[in-house]
Simulated scan of single mutants.
Amino acid sequence: MASPSSMSPATVSRRGSRSPSKKALMNPSFADLPSDLLRMIMSHLVLEDNIHASGACKSWCEAAVSVRVVEKHPWLMCFRKRGNLVELRDPLQWKLYTLSLPELAESTVCYSRDGWLLMDKTGSKKDVFFFNPFSRELITMPECELEFDTIAFSCSPTSDNCVVVAIRFTYYSATISTCHPGDDKWVTATFPCHGIGVYKRSNLVYQNDRFYCINAAGFLSNFHPSSGTWSGYCVHRLRSPYMYDRNQYGRKAKAVALAEKEGELFVMYACMNEKPMVYKLVSMKWEEVSETTLDSLTIFFSFHNSELRTNLPWMRSKVYFSRFGYNRKRCLSYSFDKSMYNRKRRASYSCDESMCRPGEESRSWIELCRPQILWIDPPPKNLLDLMLSSSHNN
């Protein structure tokens, strides 16, 4: 029988299980690290380093492959009401970076795509221009005579295929102006509204040479810039209870957003404190996305643009909204796995963590998305060191 002195917590095991050998205890290996810790370490590596690390041993390979991120998640960009400083935050690490952009003085953001911002001068939507906040490249556009409600572009303005579409809705009509970077003027035409201008509308989404828009009542319309045609899309009308049941959901903050992923259209209806409802367009019909599909999705929702990702292991099965949480500690998000929104609240003059289940009221959260905050592609790594960073949250 072994003496007590020869026994230690590290060598004691249940009867029938094998104890670690003395040699293993004296010579620990990185391969013996717990799998959760290995995955956490691997998640902080860039793709190239992740691939190199996966060749070390079997346990490292399994951990590296399980968290390998091919896609990059977007960052939040917040425009301050005064001054030239713009805030950038990684929704995963939540570290604050500030970027001085005097070029955007007295300007408001309209849309973001492929790392570019589409801006207009405050108080005048006629003065529209492109701006890349990281390269500082600015591309001007001719004066737009249309006081538009929504605007979007198809791809990077440096591409020959880029087209900008601006739309003004009324109860009966949709007035649409189009322009390519480098053109001398916008081309404008007016079409029947097809019912989309009556209710709250989503952002514009470009897919397969068309711009799509859906409203709270479920009307989907599209504009084909090549032929200059605007039409209602022949899909069944999607009726979200968040928009129709005014007795139960009438006073809560609501939002509707379109997103495109690999040629497929998705729409999400959100209502404060309720589970977001996500649908996918399949064979000209909206189908609610299954729990299995939601588990692989990450949705980034904003007033100006919405993004979908399918390969973000540490952020999957969530919706991230373009709104800072209480005390600016994180952004508002919803977890499909936990069926909860994250929340911060005051309790005994201190800040503690709480979770609100669907149906619970929270009057301090009156908006899901803020117009001055949007999602943008992350900055290049070589630029981060040059930006003013802070480990403290404002």
Rank of each mutant, 00 (worst) to 15 (best):
P371T: 07
L99D: 00
R345L: 09
G123H: 04
D352A: 08
E137Y: 00
N273K: 11
C369P: 11
E103R: 09
R14G: 10
V109R: 00
F211A: 14
A259N: 10
N342I: 02
A64Y: 02
S173M: 03
F148L: 00
A216L: 07
F266T: 04
S19D: 00
P358Q: 04
D184N: 13
I151M: 03
L297N: 06
L96N: 12
S227W: 07
L38I: 03
D127K: 14
S43V: 08
R15G: 12
T298V: 00
H224M: 04
S335Q: 01
A253E: 02
R346I: 14
P133E: 06
V46F: 13
T122C: 04
F303C: 15
V165S: 11
N222S: 15
S231L: 01
S240W: 05
K125F: 04
P371W: 02
T122P: 00
H392S: 15
F303P: 06
S296G: 03
K275C: 15
E48T: 03
E353N: 13
D352Y: 12
K252S: 10
R201H: 14
S159L: 11
T98Q: 15
K338Q: 09
R309A: 08
Y279G: 10
D32H: 05
S231W: 04
S35N: 04
P225F: 03
